[in-house]
Design a binder for these strands. Structure first.
Length: 582
DNA sequence: GCCGTTTTCGGCCCGACTGTTTTCAGTCG
């Protein structure tokens, strides 16, 4: 069992305990344990015979070791199972609805035995909920809207979970006899932020007619299959434990390039490419680019050959959306897309001073290990009381500590003092301007405004942009979680104001909170808005998430120079200084 | 349920916002 599965079950147990009205401190213990398991780099299932090492993990005590041992040995947790049985298997899904917390879920269950979204929707529509305390017509309407929004995203997975699963499956196929190549295709290869299902392509001598039957049998024997959906001659489909569907195709080597191109998509890109093929007197499908007249193969072994035969440069998968990439490939004007190695600093991270897990020094070492030239420490401000956010006094002390560690690192990596402040309901920031002026990086966040009407919220952010101490707008669209629709705000007005004021907008690379999608990013660049990317790391391991946010930047055709933290330290700092201050 | 004790029981991050509650519960971060 993987760490993330252990972590998930502990977290679900916490949710269920919360619905059952259990002691809040016990619930918190399960959540902390879940986080601790997720943050551990060691494979915990391998430590099942060494309880002392499990016990050494912070927030894992005797009770949790027993829980983990049970989970690893039996694949189940008694308490988790018992609570699910008491309620409904789909009960936890209700918690994913916006504004629907444990108290409401418990109320729905106690009054009407509602345990899944379909029943909740039916009850809401029939007026059954109107009699419940705290449920007016308006709140029921809001609930129904939430159900609609949720369904739009249901069944989709964040890019990191999909990548993790796809890599595990790929690993299995790579070690099968006669396999020479395994590649992830589909929307995951194109770097979409959420993924409906995963496409994996396999080729090698194992896929020749004499071998393919045996190979398919080996594929079906994979232990990572939770539920087999279909098994044909050259394609197998199955669900993973978490419900993610994976399609694996066994392909002959000679049509590898055509298949990779075809199954990478997107649909619109492929349509445009096939039209272009017709103009040249060719036809394109998943097996080959071939002549229309005599069906002879023009190209099929590699993507490069196929694009070249269509008089096109090879197009990076992230651009294959029929957004002008074919014209650019024809004129040799495709952008040199930004890459991980272009990023010189991760400029949004938290430490143990607030809700991070590591020290300033540990974050700096982790940044150094990833080859960064600088980082910015941006802990929370006081408005986020739950995180022990910094007030003016503590913020000033924190600046001193950050500068001290900066000196200790002796130039191997620079550490800039910063802060993630909250934009308050009046558009002010929640720390004094005297203190903010001493920070190199001030990120303004809209944590507490998420439920505002569009005009209100936009006005508050516009007001905050007027503050010259604000360098970067963070969490801008509020897509903090997959379940939530973006904040209702006038993004264009905000981008215009930010561009005029010299403030940057932030792409948060953490997969569950990719704030800006490719369209937003394109709009930002068109307006000449500064753009940054960072991980919002709360743990050293989170720094690895940079790659996921990067694919959105690539999809927006961004080049290294478009992103502020691809610049050397001095240029980056100059970019953070607002014109009003210069 | 975890942790750290002036060690085996008591403490454990809390403020802003919303809606409908005329005084606060629920949700969120």
């Amino acid at each position: 069992m993987e760490n993330r599965d252990l972590s998930r079950i502990l977290n679900e147990t916490a949710d269920l305990l919360e619905i059952s009205g259990a002691d809040s401190f016990r619930i918190r213990s399960y959540r902390r344990a879940s986080e601790a398991v997720d943050a551990t780099t060691e494979h915990l299932a391998a430590l099942v015979d060494e309880p002392k090492r499990l016990l050494a993990i912070p927030n894992i005590g005797k009770g949790m070791v027993a829980n983990l041992t049970e989970l690893i040995q039996t694949g189940e947790l008694g308490l988790h199972k018992e609570l699910i049985a008491r309620y409904h298997p789909k009960m936890l899904e209700l918690l994913k609805l916006p504004g629907c917390g444990p108290k409401s879920v418990a109320l729905f269950w106690e009054t009407h035995q509602i345990g899944d979204i379909d029943s909740l929707e039916a009850a809401a529509k029939s007026g059954k909920l109107d009699t419940l305390p705290r449920f007016s017509k308006k709140s029921v309407e809001k609930l129904l809207k939430g159900i609609d929004d949720y369904r739009k995203n249901a069944g989709r997975f964040h890019i990191d979970a999909a990548t993790h699963n796809a890599e595990q499956v790929s690993e299995y196929f790579r070690q099968l006899p006669g396999v020479t190549r395994v590649e992830i295709a589909g929307s995951l290869r194109r770097g979409r932020e959420t993924i409906g299902d995963v496409d994996i392509l396999v080729t090698g001598p194992c896929c020749e007619p004499a071998e393919i039957g045996a190979t398919m049998e080996r594929a079906a024997a994979y232990s990572g299959i939770a539920q087999l959906i279909a098994k044909g001659e050259n394609k197998i489909s199955f669900n993973r434990q978490n419900g993610l569907q994976v399609d694996v195709r066994l392909l002959p080597e000679q049509s590898w390039g055509a298949a990779l191109q075809y199954f990478t998509g997107s649909k619109m890109h492929n349509v445009a490419l096939r039209q272009r093929a017709l103009k040249f007197g060719y036809t394109l499908n998943e097996y080959a680019l071939a002549r229309l007249d005599d069906a002879s193969v023009v190209a099929s072994r590699t993507e490069e050959e196929i694009y070249a035969a269509l008089k096109l440069d090879w197009i990076p998968p992230e651009l294959r959306e029929d957004n002008g990439e074919i014209e650019a490939a024809e004129k040799h004007t495709l952008p040199h897309l930004i890459e991980l190695k272009d990023i010189r600093g991760d400029i949004h991270m938290h430490t143990e001073a607030t809700d991070g897990r590591n020290t300033i020094r540990e974050m700096a070492e982790a940044g150094l290990a990833r080859g960064y030239e600088y980082i910015a420490i941006t802990d929370h401000s006081k408005n986020l009381a739950m995180t022990n956010g910094l007030d003016d006094t503590r913020a000033l002390e924190h600046i001193q500590k950050i500068r001290q560690v900066d000196r200790e690192m002796e130039g191997r990596i620079r550490i800039f003092p910063g802060i993630e402040v909250d934009i308050l309901s009046d558009g002010e920031l929640d720390l004094s301007n005297e203190v903010l002026a001493q920070m190199d990086v001030v990120i303004g966040s809209v944590h507490s405004l998420f439920n505002q009407p569009r005009e209100e919220m936009t006005a508050r952010i516009l007001r905050a942009i007027e503050n010259p101490n604000l360098c970067i707008l963070g969490h801008l669209t509020g897509r903090m979680l997959l379940r939530r629709e973006p904040y209702a705000l006038d993004l264009n007005a905000i981008l215009d104001a930010a561009a005029a004021a010299g403030a940057a907008v932030e792409q948060n690379a953490s997969p569950e909170r990719l704030d800006l999608n490719d369209r937003n990013l394109r709009a930002a660049r068109q307006r000449g808005c500064k753009i940054t990317i960072s991980t919002d790391a709360h743990h050293t391991s989170h720094l690895d998430k940079m790659q996921y946010g990067l694919s959105q930047l690539r999809r927006a055709w961004l080049q290294p120079g478009d992103v502020l933290n691809t610049r050397p330290a001095a240029e980056f700092l100059a970019g953070c200084r607002r014109p009003a201050q210069q």
